[in-house]
Nucleic acid binder design. Structure first.
Lengths: 192, 192
DNA sequence: TTCAACCCTTAATCTACCTTAAGACTATTT
DNA sequence: AAATAGTCTTAAGGTAGATTAAGGGTTGAA
């Protein structure tokens, strides 16, 4: 199955898996096809999976009191997505994870992940690095949110995700930038 | 040395260290005393250490174009602090880490950390969990920044860090909340 | 014990961004 | 093919929070 091959070679970026480790991994993965607008996590659920995106695109977002969505992050091909808080602490999630495009994913349950961590220590190392990279992304995003204007954040979004800006409706980008679609529209008209 | 004992028992929260592992850890730690306003990392430096705070308090912040500081996080007793981005990618840091109080720390160099990861796999696991917890904190903070008013963020800062609000000047809290000290002052006067 | 360096507060003015609303355009569903 | 739902834009009016400025309080170094 080529989807699974993608994931095994994904780990070549970190410490490559040997046959034994790939075997342990691949027998535990569940492949799923997800439709546009389908959720793989909803507010109130306890998150059960660490998800690898083979193809497609997801958004993870929270909804505030007044019903507005706030996109925390996107995940595209060859990326991981989960609500770590809910997965680890086994408490109801405050977030939604929703497909923006028809997608293919591979999922590891918490139990399987624990099995891999315990019996194949290399996964501890690889997932440590994966999560460190995610942490760095978030930290940069938080700093930017505090220290720049919406206009600058939009510019740097375009640089950082050149594909995404074509694939996403403007409303989703605005929600990621922490502004309204109307204001994004204004920014765009003034930048030309 | 009791400072080091603190750290060894710190790991009891995760997977406790055996004698062999504690030994490997403690021989690699460097203890340092840091004065108020002293930096352990400055913008442009390459971050060399993963730092455990035995006693005292640090802030990690970035400075924007106009010279304003933005506090990303604080670290108090029994907490870790480092710029993961700079430490891992070995590129110049965009951040400062500065002591707010006279402090005692224990530091692990990148090389020592790598030694521990490679030769004592339990450290991979323990630091994975430590970083996961930090990631969760950041994610919640980012969501809050997008979805609540400064007033609500101040209230929840008070709940989350009841000690810190006594130990920190108001200017530092404002910088953490992403507002000016003047506006924090207004919030405080209106909340009574 | 005085001077400098912070720190806190209040208040007036200003601005980045929000809210609401309305019209045109484009997908998706039936 | 029509209907429905989502999307983008523009524009008027509104608000959370910034900026500037000024006065008073506290700390700490010389």
């Amino acid at each position: 199955m080529s989807a699974i091959k993608n994931l095994v070679s994904h780990f070549d970026r970190y410490l490559s898996l040997d046959d034994n480790e790939s075997q342990a991994l691949t027998t535990r993965l569940t492949e799923r096809k997800i439709k546009r607008k389908q959720y793989i996590l909803q507010e109130g659920d306890i998150c059960k999976y660490f998800t690898y995106v083979v193809e497609g695109c997801f958004k993870m977002y929270g909804v505030d009191k007044s019903g507005t969505e706030h996109n925390l992050l996107f995940a595209v091909e060859d990326d991981w997505i989960t609500d770590l808080d809910s997965l680890h602490k086994e408490r109801p999630s405050k977030l939604f994870i929703e497909a923006i495009e028809p997608s293919t994913i591979l999922q590891l349950s918490k139990g399987d992940l624990w099995y891999l961590y315990t019996n194949h220590p290399k996964f501890n190392r690889n997932f440590r690095v994966i999560i460190e990279d995610k942490y760095i992304e978030l930290q940069n995003r938080l700093l930017q949110t505090f220290s720049t204007t919406a206009y600058e954040r939009y510019e740097s979004f375009l640089e950082q995700y050149p594909n995404l800006s074509n694939r996403l409706p403007n409303t989703q980008i605005a929600s990621y930038l922490g502004i309204t679609p109307e204001f994004l529209s204004k920014i765009r008209s003034e930048s030309r």
